[in-house]
Design a protein around this nucleic acid. Sequence first.
DNA 1: CAAAATTAAGGGAACGATCCCAAAATCACA
DNA 2: TGTGATTTTGGGATCGTTCCCTTAATTTTG
Lengths: 339, 339
Amino acid sequence: MKRITIKDLSKYLALSTSTISRAFVDDKHIHPDTKRTVLEAAQKLGYRPNPMALSLKYGKSKNIGFVVPEMTTPFSSTVLRGVQNILYPLGYRVIIMQSEEDPEIERKNLLLLEEFNVDGIIINLCHETYNQANYQHVMQRGIPMVFFDRIPPNALDVSKVLVNDAIKASLMVEHLISIGRKRIVHLRGPASIRNAEERVSGYRRILTKYGLFDPALLVEPKGMLFQHGRDAAKELVEKGIAFDSIFAFTDTLAIGAMNYLLEKGYRIPEQVALASFSGTEMATIVHPPLSNVQQPLVEMGETAATLVMEKIKDPDVASKSVTLDAKLIYRASTLGMPV
Amino acid sequence: MKRITIKDLSKYLALSTSTISRAFVDDKHIHPDTKRTVLEAAQKLGYRPNPMALSLKYGKSKNIGFVVPEMTTPFSSTVLRGVQNILYPLGYRVIIMQSEEDPEIERKNLLLLEEFNVDGIIINLCHETYNQANYQHVMQRGIPMVFFDRIPPNALDVSKVLVNDAIKASLMVEHLISIGRKRIVHLRGPASIRNAEERVSGYRRILTKYGLFDPALLVEPKGMLFQHGRDAAKELVEKGIAFDSIFAFTDTLAIGAMNYLLEKGYRIPEQVALASFSGTEMATIVHPPLSNVQQPLVEMGETAATLVMEKIKDPDVASKSVTLDAKLIYRASTLGMPV
DNA sequence: CAAAATTAAGGGAACGATCCCAAAATCACA
DNA sequence: TGTGATTTTGGGATCGTTCCCTTAATTTTG
């Protein structure tokens, strides 16, 4: 019931706490026999080092903050799994904060994490105006930050994990062209997020190349939720803008749009083909399943966790940007493989 | 940069650390003027109490473990929001563990949480044989546990948050009957989970009442994932068992089944109506949207958090079972409102 | 106005571990 | 067998806070 401490072992074995401690850290100033005795006694009495004492001693909480816009889609939770894969075996705990796509909540979450004394933060920005001042404040406090997926503009010197957004976006758009689509809508992401811009530029470049670009087809939803994807599709339809396919910033937006279209009786993919950028399980649970650019989400989390650990071990290590490779997955929403 | 401690304030104000401390806790043995001075200085220098020191002092980590089968569907993340609503303002941190529907991982997660020194655990069981011995071990260590949603059999004396499963299940099945269905499949949950049994009994009771019960329609999927729902539907079809509707243990199973049926060209709800028990956002993002028994997920999390806090404050308080009320939501997958 | 009662402030142990420094035990070797 | 070198152990400060126990200052009271 009561926790066994080093002092208990010390009494039990009639040895000083220093000696007991030496048995656990790899200290050469201890007799091998003594070490064995201590380890056995520890085993027998069920000794476990007290993480709170170590936290206090070393000034490290061994907590890492994980800030995401939401956890209701599988995106963040899949990345989280990667993060946990790396951090749990190292004895680090992960504390999750959902900013619900609201920069104000995101700000509060960062403050709370600071309060909680986290040793590092892994963050995916929420979609609106970003909290540059806050990020800087956190980092000045000596808490390393690693960004993934939604990356801030270049100004900030931080480690980042991203994918080759522009290229893959353009390839996916090219795929739509290859299946004969000419009026390709892009439901874009917010301008405050760098990779939203990258995906837009990939989209624009390839359409311009084929002479198909039409600014009326580049639309910015009011937010990142299903409802917003839905609203965007509705607006297109009601404005009478013709389109034969949609490439969306996220699975969520794509599915929102898809649902509206299905309700209105559009046939998918015959009348409107759909593709998105994300790579969550959601793409496979809707009907028809969605073609998308699949990001290596678990790997993304693992990379982010590794980067944050690097910064924790050596705060002066240079910031890194790791670019992972995303894969194009063709599903029924775009009629199978491209020619 | 460097953390301000009580000692810094002590030097700055030429007061003992005791006095400084008294200004923060509500101690009457301090002159109001002194208190004001201290508080002002704290504000000015940016003093924040060190949670790690408090943890050590009080033997409480202020960490709560949250163990769930998975986070890739919105179920757990919505409950999590409720948990966070209650716990974050109290200065508690939430550590999430995904057991991936695997009892072995669940076991390891519990050990890890014990290692992490959590003050309490909120848990939703994974679907397979449950780790009774482990739950008991954790509780013997003095860590209170609160179960929600998937509840263990009665043997365990723990606090629980559940919904009125049997009744709502029977009402939903009755709804299917009211829209003229006679061959109602139930994709049931695992026998090791009490509310799976409850839902089955609600299903069976109402069908028996109407003389519609057929054991061939009560099927147990091989797991809890989309794929398993899908497989179950496939098997029914391939075995040539006639059915005109499905009532599933979770949204996930229902959607898995639905996708298979849609692919095979079944019209939903005309040929097969679908309903489930869960209440996640997923039900609304598929087409047609799914009728389901909607559990108050956020409230569930809030209740679980409140119960665990009660046990933390007073370990001897009696275990409680709180039953929340679930709502039936009728959507297009069952053709609108019942008559 | 002195003694008693009250109020305010300070000193230092405690929580559990590590680690520096000193002390003791062992060993090597002349 | 004694001296110095080496190995092994112990003592105690430290991290930041609270809280018990004194001590000092102030107020009340006869």
